Amino acid sequence: MPVSPERILENLFPFYRQEEFPVLLHQYKTWSESRPLEGCRIIDASPVFRNTCAKYASLLAAGAKLTVAISPVMPHDPDTVVLLGQYGIPVVEEERAGGPYDVVMDCAGALSHVPSLCGYVELTRSGAERYAACPQPVWMVDAGKIKQIETCLGTGESFFRALDALGIKNEQGQTLLVIGYGKVGRGIALHALNRKLNVIVADVEKKPLSSASFVQAKDKAALTDAARRAFCAVTATGKRNAMSGLIDPAILLSSGILLANMGVEDEWGPEIPKNRLLNEGRPLNFILPDPTQMRYIDPPLALHNQGALELVAGRALPGLFPPPPEMEERFLSLIRSCGSIPSGMLDWIS
């Protein structure tokens, strides 16, 4: 017999305080009464980790018939997969997802091949290309402001938490090279500067920076010089093999610089052996039990859930579209009043 969503939440409370996931808890309480997804067949490809179970609890409380998909695109925690089986939640590999489902809740486009009756909800920017020509509604969580809480604040924090877990020193005065200055790169740089590290940002476009140095990513000499000065270089470009041809591999292989990746794809390219990269080139934060802390992952996972409700209710037009700004503001208001993210950090993403 399936475990109740209430039991799933009870199992999470020893690990997380309620103020760490106020939006998902609000969804759970509201949807337990209104049951807006009653009987809807939903498949969800969010990265499967312990804190993702709070997302599943809200969907089940809403009445959804939930299936969880795992794919080679995104890492997952095997222990949590076993736990889902104990909860009675079906788990399938993405290539065996079948369908159709009422709503496909995707991540990195892993389920873009699965037929959906109402449309798709995509969690990441990396999945946008897979849905560019989709004739159905595609709710793009990453196109809004809320996703920055995860990608800027949460991923930046978890990069350093992963370094700490590996026993890698990152001390005041050391130099960090951040390659790619989108949402993830900005977050890493922000946390690095808060730790009093020297930061060099490399990007293909000139970025306005106040406390970090900048090098043009296609200027091979400048980028190589930056790598020579850094204790670690981390990629956050969002593009597979982005570093191919930008830095002489012989220099990287012969130096003591640490090489890390925080993107979904391997951004260092085939010239750099996997054993030369931290976590073999997979996103470094995925070595952690919680790759993103609950307080940072709560808002985007809740927005991902909200997308399913919007599609089922028919409040969407064909094509890719962002979450409505007024909805995101309601989420932010809830986080400010009940959550544990400091207001100053929320002001930064706003």
Rank of each mutant, 00 (worst) to 15 (best):
I188L: 10
V114T: 13
L252G: 14
S255T: 11
G263H: 05
L9V: 00
K169W: 08
E95D: 13
D219K: 03
P325Y: 13
M140I: 06
L252A: 11
M294H: 01
Q306M: 08
D106N: 00
K183L: 10
R195Q: 10
I349E: 08
L284W: 02
T30F: 01
V141C: 03
L309G: 06
S255D: 14
N170Q: 14
R35F: 09
D77K: 12
E157A: 12
N51C: 04
I257C: 10
S255N: 15
A69Q: 01
F13W: 15
Y296E: 03
S112I: 05
E10R: 13
P72N: 03
A302V: 07
H304D: 00
G156K: 07
G109L: 02
E122M: 07
C338S: 15
G154I: 11
H76C: 11
L59K: 06
K29E: 14
V92G: 01
N241G: 12
E171W: 09
E328L: 06
E326H: 11
H26L: 05
S32F: 13
P14K: 02
A69S: 10
E94I: 00
K169H: 08
G63K: 02
K183H: 06
V234I: 15
Y56E: 07
R315N: 15
P137V: 03
G182C: 09
A233R: 10
P115I: 10
A226C: 10
R330P: 10
L258M: 13
A260G: 06
G98D: 03
G119T: 04
Q174L: 13
V138I: 03
K239L: 10
M262R: 08
M327C: 09
T30P: 14
F159I: 13
G88L: 02
P324Q: 15
P322W: 05
T237P: 14
C118D: 08
A221Q: 12
R229P: 01
E267H: 07
D347A: 06
K207R: 12
Y296T: 05
H76A: 01
R282E: 14
N285F: 06
Y56G: 08
S337C: 11
E94T: 07
G238A: 03
F21A: 15
W31F: 09
H76G: 09
L176V: 10
S112N: 12
L252H: 07
S158C: 09
L9E: 15
P5N: 15
L59P: 01
P342S: 14
D248K: 14
T237R: 14
F49I: 07
P137C: 03
V201N: 14
L278P: 12
S211D: 15
W348Q: 10
P72F: 11
K65I: 00
A69P: 02
K239A: 04
K183N: 11
T52K: 15
F15Q: 12
V81R: 00
L311I: 11
V23R: 04
E271I: 00
R276Y: 02
C338H: 15
L117R: 11
